[in-house]
Write a protein that binds this DNA or RNA. Structure first.
Lengths: 195, 195
DNA sequence: CGAGTCACAATACAGTCGCAATGTATGGTC
DNA sequence: GACCATACATTGCGACTGTATTGTGACTCG
């Protein structure tokens, strides 16, 4: 081999395997339960291997968070089939809400990291960028809907906040899934018309 | 003294002193930095004293969270001067948002505990109860406003979610304070009329 | 066919954790 | 003044943490 890549194993793949273990641990037992040994046990490998692929715990955490964020983003984009702005926005936001077990897991992880990122600003940048991206997209769609009397930027920010809050309440079981969807639909009807 | 109260010191007061230290630590360095020793150091006392007033760390955490929730609730009630439903709701929700440093601190703590409570359900009950209480109040006010076409329960849930999300984005500096207030006002105008 | 790099495993280490046990000083009760 | 519960302070312990170090096969390259 000429390039400096690894010889027989796929680094990325291994790191994602470990990050999956991080995610499961964080979601089921909290971020504080995420230690190198626990991650290794959860993934069924030795702690030495974890250290081999992540030189430090911070590196592991950052990678895991990035992976979760990427997955959410990818799934959101996959759900965005170009129909009406209304459907586009609705599908996108529904994809972000924790309405099934895997998304609950992911949102759980994001929440844990969000609380953690308030202390470690290096983690927050990824979150912020991803949110800004989605806000811009939402604003475009609201603008395309062309309802007069609504400021697209403002509406997008409001929608994003609403979805964040709904996700929060879904995670803590304060809201049933239908209620959350209904609340979102009501808001969409107000902003984008009853179409 | 006849009653079984403590002799010279006020238990409640001491516990609140320690819980204040917990809150400062949680807000500035994260929940994971909250240890008996750190709390003791932050409060300027010995770790033995912390143990004297809280038999276990869990007890300390639960008390601290309850204290924060109570403070937020008390301040909200204090802000509720009976004028129009619109003003009532607006003042209440504005009081919940992290718009100054102390409220940032408190919201920060609530967020940290919220992430933690997903794992320890015993902590979540207090949060849930407090939220349900506020939701009922909001629904009453929306009903009193009597805008037709809006379901009060649904609108209250939506408002609560919106405020939660706005708080989240304020904490992570994704939103400026004026933007958050503007988003809230826009939503209130939609729900309660432009009054 | 050495030489070397990669992928991992195992262990050691210094530090911190929650918690329990113990010591002591101080006030109230009789 | 004897007695005792309260209010701390101190110390120690076992478990656990992240990280550094070292060892060991396997595979590649010259």
């Amino acid at each position: 081999m000429v390039c400096g890549m690894s010889r027989t194993v796929d680094h990325r793949e291994r790191r994602e395997l470990l990050a999956d273990a991080v995610m499961r641990l964080a979601a089921t037992r909290g971020l504080e339960a995420v230690s190198l040994r626990h991650v290794a046990a959860e993934a069924g490998v030795s702690t030495g291997m974890v250290q081999h692929y992540f030189r430090t715990k911070d590196e592991m955490m950052t990678f895991a968070l990035g992976m979760v964020v990427d997955r959410i983003r990818e799934r959101s984009q996959a759900a965005a089939v170009p129909t009406s702005p209304y459907r586009l926005v609705r599908d996108l936001l529904l994809e972000v809400l924790p309405l099934d077990e895997t998304r609950r897991l992911e949102n759980h992880v994001v929440l844990a990291f969000l609380a953690y990122a308030a202390v470690k600003p290096s983690l927050a940048s990824g979150l912020r960028e991803s949110a800004a991206q989605m806000r811009a997209f939402l604003a475009d769609q609201v603008r395309a809907a062309g309802r007069d009397g609504v400021d697209p930027e403002r509406a997008a920010a409001g929608l994003l906040a609403l979805v964040d809050g709904l996700g929060l309440q879904l995670l803590s079981r304060q809201l049933a899934e239908e209620e959350a969807v209904a609340a979102l639909d009501a808001q969409l009807a107000l902003l984008l018309g009853p179409a």
